[in-house]
């Protein structure tokens, strides 16, 4: 529902439209609004599940925060101060009413408001995803085009082998290898840290983004490669050749654009996955991203932080998928926004 199944969307959409004669409805604000509404409902349920899961998991924030040798009345006082002395249902109600006031609570450990944490740490994660996706596209699009169209014997085989290797490499290992090579041996990248201003942040982000590329480029370029092969089989490419379309128009309008929809949908899905998976890069590259905060908060059973971050992650993932679908339908009108 949120993500069109890769590949099948286009054909089924075509089949559904076959034989119809009237003008086809364009992606309208109505549809976007409906999807937005659905997205908010999904995000709400994600939040509810997060609320329950963190409370069902063993360990509690007071013992995590106060450590080993806290006296029982200290613990009781702390529970009261943290609002954990009431039953979970009341806690949920309190959280919900806070949510409507835009108050996500504050960290039980550091006392920093969750909204403040999101404001400072979320941009880092979003920038990391953005640069990763940009670099992935810059690499994948020409690569897949070239492999599909160059018709060099053995090249597709080499491509498949290399991408399989790229896919199989664990990203923490890639991160450490690249950090060692670029950071220590060649000294062209800082080993840790972050600068929140653009474009200075790019110098800290390009290496972790490159790590993401090692996983993303194989996935994306393989999907795009096979879509392009499929497109090249189609007759309209022949039509385009006969029509004598100029090469740049031809590659874009007749080869790439009709092949992009599955890639875009996949990319939006991968971006959603990345929201969670960048945490390993945030740890290794010491980037002050939100994923790292989540991990710390989970180990410390910092309830408000966990709930707040998961809520925002839920919204983000759902909206990324929505944006992916919108972009796919803009690029390829055969893809319908549902």
């Amino acid at each position: 529902m949120t993500a069109t199944p890769i590949g099948s969307g286009v054909e089924s959409a075509v089949r559904a439209q076959e034989g119809e004669d009237g003008p086809r409805p364009q992606p309208t604000w109505e549809k976007v609004l409906r999807r937005t509404g659905r997205a908010i409902i999904v995000a709400f349920w994600v939040m509810v599940v997060a609320f329950m899961l963190i409370r069902l998991s063993p360990g509690d924030p007071v013992s995590a925060a106060l450590g080993a040798d806290a006296a029982p009345d200290t613990v009781a006082a702390a529970r009261k101060a943290l609002g954990l002395d009431v039953d979970p249902l009341t806690q949920f109600w309190n959280y919900l009413t806070g949510l409507f006031r835009g108050d996500l609570g504050a960290s039980l450990i550091s006392g920093v408001p969750v909204t403040e944490m999101l404001r400072t740490n979320m941009p880092v994660t979003l920038w990391l995803i953005f640069t990763s996706v940009t670099m992935t596209l810059v690499i994948s699009l020409p690569l897949a085009m070239f492999i599909a169209m160059a018709r060099i014997p053995g090249l597709p085989y080499l491509f498949r082998t290399l991408t399989a290797i790229g896919l199989a490499l664990p990203s923490f290992l890639v991160a450490l290898i690249l950090l060692y090579q670029f950071g220590l041996i060649w000294q062209v990248a800082p080993i840790f840290g972050y600068d929140p201003t653009f474009p200075a942040n790019l110098q800290y982000l390009w290496l972790p983004s490159l790590v993401n590329c090692v996983v993303l480029v194989p996935v994306l370029s393989r999907v795009l490669y096979s879509s392009i092969l499929d497109t090249l089989e189609e007759e309209f490419v022949e039509t385009g050749v006969v029509r004598g379309v100029r090469w740049n128009r031809f590659y874009w309008l007749y080869v790439l654009r009709p092949s992009l929809a599955p890639t875009v949908v996949l990319l939006s899905y991968m971006m959603g996955v990345m929201v969670g998976s960048t945490v390993i890069l945030e740890i290794i590259f010491a980037l002050p991203g939100i994923g790292r905060e989540l991990v710390t908060a989970v180990t410390m059973r910092d309830y408000p932080v966990v709930q707040g971050i998961i809520l925002v992650f839920g919204i983000l993932v759902v909206f990324l998928s929505l944006i992916g679908d919108i972009v796919a339908s803009l690029l390829d009108p055969r893809v319908r926004l549902t």
């Binding site: 007759e235 309209f236 039509t239 009709p258 690029l331 009108p333 055969r334």
Partner: peptide, 12 residues
């Protein structure tokens, strides 16, 4: 083209 279905460029 051969097939009315795939002969036309779908994105134009």
């Amino acid at each position: 083209p051969q097939s009315a279905l795939t002969g036309a460029n779908p994105v134009m």
